[in-house]
Amino acid sequence: MKTSIPHIASNTFREAVRDRVLYNLIAFALLLSGAAILVGQISIEIEKLVVINLGLTAVSLFGVVIAIFIGIGLVSKEIEKRTLYTVLSRPVRRWEFIVGKFFGLAGTLTVNTFFMAIGVFAALFYVSHRFVRADALIFVALYFIILEFLIVCSLALLFSSFSSPLLSAVFAFSLFVIGSFSEDLRNFASMAHGVSRWLATGAACLVPNFSAFNVIASIAHEQPVAVQLILQNTLYALFYAAMALSGAVLIFEHRDLK
């Protein structure tokens, strides 16, 4: 039996495009061009640093917001509107539906990130009038941002498979915020004693370690990224997303579509 994943993924992508999700690019372009013009006028030495920092942070935040807001409705909206009935009554397995949705959303975010990256490079060129070898490091930061999106997408899907969109949004945002400070949580765990230590260590292991993906500041200062970190982050993101997706599949496989 052929898999339905590519068809479900492409339909999810088409839905995002038709629902004007990519319009966020206009806001992003306005933000970045405004910042580039402003920074170009008020600073001489740090304009490049500001553009890279602001640009990449905006890429990450815009993407996370899209991942959460689309991701939380991917399953629950289909159940609520009953569009799922005519899909699952076909030779489509439930896990294929979840995985297809995941790839559709991940694809949307990758395309979105691609266009934003063009914006970042354009702004960079505007303020520095040339590219240097160290600017290639931006690609590593963008790669890490996409890995981060994979985790957020899978988490949003996981929550969407069993709770309402509102609760899913709260859970996903909370995990994103906690995950962004997971390094602090780890530090706290190493300093704590007794039950607090166990609890903090457990929480630090469970929440996604988004701090490890944030290399924006070091890249803005043209510091290289270790190959080991790239490998480690890749494996971590794939493993975490696979785990969250498996959880979503496990829940969805046994769920009654009332």
Binding site: N11, E15, R82, T86
Partner: peptide, 16 residues
């Protein structure tokens, strides 16, 4: 499922 067709009650489809 490849050999059956189903029309749900008050169907709603992807309106985009």
């Amino acid at each position: 499922k490849a050999q059956i067709g189903f029309l749900p009650e008050q169907p709603y489809f992807y309106d985009y």
